[in-house]
């Protein structure tokens, strides 16, 4: 297992959130949407210009900008 930033995940890749470093309003918004450590997520895809990224989490689809995804550390399987 290794930890990567959500920004660097590939479409169709899955993982589990291990850490969220955002503070302030962004931190709140990220947590309000259920992005807390221990939550599994799956990268659905990216917008045509590669940003934002769409993820599947807790039964819904959420999109966030790459600079927001930079605050989210995800544990993924090696080699995936």
């Amino acid at each position: 297992m290794k930890t990567v930033l959500l920004r660097h995940m590939q479409p169709k890749q899955s993982g589990v959130i291990v850490k969220v470093t955002a503070t302030g309003e962004l931190g709140w918004r990220i947590r309000d949407m259920g992005l807390v450590p221990g939550t599994p997520l799956h990268v659905q895809g990216r917008a045509p210009l590669k940003d934002p990224v769409a993820i599947r989490i807790r039964d819904f689809t959420l999109t966030l900008r790459n600079n927001e995804a930079d605050h989210i550390h995800v544990e993924v399987a090696d080699g995936s």
Partner: peptide
């Protein structure tokens, strides 16, 4: 900018 975090509803 206000955080984007947009839900794509079904």
């Amino acid at each position: 900018s206000t955080p984007f975090l947009l839900e794509l509803p079904p």
